[in-house]
Design a protein around this nucleic acid. Structure first.
Lengths: 242, 242
DNA sequence: TAAAACGAAATCGTCTGATGATTTTAATTG
DNA sequence: CAATTAAAATCATCAGACGATTTCGTTTTA
């Protein structure tokens, strides 16, 4: 009678694998400042830091690289990805349409299940930072806001990709008038809650565009040297599909 | 000995690592039909198939998973990702804005370097398939077309992510009127070559939307069972904790 | 002394082998 | 024949090893 064992066997994804824990910890460390862009990820270091074997560390690194958080060069190891100014612009360009989509979908789905509550809570939480100075805690809450938006939208693929984008926003939370920023959030949230798709999408896009423009006020020293124009490595071979 | 080797070492990443080769081969196998959606990726099998060690296989699998090509479940191994109908819709929704962006950017940059030549070549190549029946070779050329478009656009982040999307288009190249499809491509290409951003973006989006609609004519058997709406696995998250 | 050459150390890519955990299967039993 | 149990398969992770490549400090040389 006790299929109990079988009953409980369904989800099973409770425990995170070791590499996943490392990935998560490193990303968290990025948000908390323990890891910074450009920093080198040395396998022996991570091995002792997390008390795991090399294979585990390598898996974690590989995954970080695949997510775009780190970059790898053969025999030269991995670094926390350090965007050049133009790369940052590229990421924001993608974020513009991506978060725009999230906002539009969220506006469409506000009536479903607990979407409204969830989203409202995230928004309120975000708004409590209106008077606080920039902090990593703010970045966290802002990401939760975007995440709530994405989840409400209901596009799984978007959910999957959004974290990878957000990581790069860590360094863009500067040099932007706070009042303007929070005004953006409000407009966005109100449009979403009102179910106004067009407005929500436009507001989201506009906000990201503003962030992108604010990038111009950030000194070069914030970014990695831009090797774009120089030698566009024509990809020895068609890397992806043979 | 001589530093001559070092001089020439600039390109450096000429050779693909073993895991990368496996990843590529599996993806290629997907395009060629040797691997199918839902198929299980068993480590010992791959070990003997590619004559590499387990660690190497695992790295390849982890990377496939990170790219969204495969899914992993702890202690239950990896499968080639099999999209449900709604997941396919999600992916296409993202592709719509993503390829739209690529088209728009490409239209903007047609005057740069050899962009026009590169893109024109890809387009011509694609058009040679106008009378051919569907084939994996066509899928390959179509992806090259999209890739040329993306490269012309100049957004590095888009380049990075596009391959991960394209993989899922493998199964969507069916059940769609060919003439209509190639008409789409032509409109897209002409707008891009003419530098008409708005038109190019709209054409790209429209095309993907058409593909998405064509999805409705595909039987359920093509997709994985859709667990999305039904039981959001909120259920047994905390059954243990004994 | 500054630049080039050299060699040792650090680090990476990959392999082999091993152990415990978990799932899947096959066999046994009531 | 269903249910339980034992065996096999597979996975997660670890430890150690070896060659390849880069990095870095030291020596040599101009």
């Amino acid at each position: 009678m006790n299929k109990a064992t079988k009953m409980t066997s369904r989800p099973s994804q409770a425990r995170l694998s070791s590499p996943d824990q490392i990935v998560r910890n490193i990303i968290q460390g990025l948000y908390e400042g323990q890891f910074v862009a450009g920093q080198r990820l040395i396998e022996p270091d991570l091995m002792s830091r997390y008390a795991v074997s090399r294979g585990t560390v390598r898996e974690a690194i590989k995954r970080l690289a695949a997510e775009g958080v780190a970059t790898q060069t053969t025999y030269r190891g991995a670094h926390i990805r350090h965007l050049s100014r133009s790369e940052a612009r590229d990421v924001l360009q993608l974020l513009e349409i991506t978060i725009g989509l999230a906002a539009r979908l969220a506006a469409s789905n506000m009536d479903l299940l607990g979407a409204r509550e969830q989203f409202t809570a995230a928004h309120k939480n975000l708004m409590t930072f209106v008077d606080s100075p920039d902090s990593f805690e703010f970045v966290r809450v802002r990401n939760q806001f975007y995440r709530a938006m994405t989840i409400a939208g209901g596009n799984r693929e978007l959910e999957r990709l959004m974290p990878g984008f957000q990581v790069h926003l860590i360094r863009t939370h500067l040099k932007q008038p706070q009042n303007e920023r929070f005004a953006d959030y409000r407009v966005m949230a109100e449009a979403i809650l009102a179910g106004n798709k067009k407005t929500a999408e436009a507001a989201a896009q506009k906000h990201i565009r503003r962030v992108s423009e604010a990038l111009n006020n950030i000194p070069d020293s914030t970014f990695a040297p831009d090797a774009t124009n120089q030698q566009r490595q024509f990809e020895d071979e068609d890397l992806n599909h043979a």
